[in-house]
Amino acid sequence: MKWAVVVFPGSNCDEDAANAIRAIGDPVDLVWHQEADLSNYDAIVLPGGFSYGDYLRSGAIARFSPVMNAVTQAADKGKFVLGICNGFQVLTEAGLLPGALLRNNHLQFRCEMVELTVRNNTSSFTSAYQLGEVIRVPIAHGEGRYFADDELLDRLEAKQRVAFTYVGDPNGSVRGIAGVINERGNVLGMMPHPERAVAAWMGSSDGIKMFESIHRTVEEGVYAR
């Protein structure tokens, strides 16, 4: 399978994501934000960083980037889209995922290792995990407080679209949500950084299973359910 990692002006976790993908043996291209065609790729990562400086609102400018049309088309075709941190913010701004990311409730940037509970292990992104498993993945964000209204939250939970919740409370996210999946099951956004948890010396290698889950789904020819 072939991966693309989108590079917006201001992306800064693009190389880290590409390195994590290379670590599971898959080929990956870094794709500049002006690219309008992503049809060659099976999975697309929107990496962390500060796209366009995040000056208006995190992800608010990036959604208008030329590459986002291609991302939307790829999602429509059932290909996999993984948004990490700023990538998650972009996906909510673009309407590919529900909800919004607000400023952390303590108003500070927060970088630390956190524990996550796996709430869904049937998705294409999380199949390598056990349900209820607690994994360790670092966060690094200032605007990571997930927010949605109760009706939406109830629906997300009922459909197992909450992928991960925080064991602790690093940012005030509603119902502790750290990552959500779209209705079709082929778009995942999460604030923690799985690409920074792919070797024991990083303090955790739990993130590697996310890339392996996607790899396995694509290689077994099973596109989204």
């Binding site: 880290d16 500070q108 940037f109 927060r110 970088c111 950084h193 792919v198």
Partner: peptide, 14 residues
């Protein structure tokens, strides 16, 4: 102090 800094970007902080 340092939890307000990104200490792990570049995934090379040993």
């Amino acid at each position: 102090i340092y939890q307000q800094y990104d200490t792990s970007v570049r995934a090379s902080t040993y």
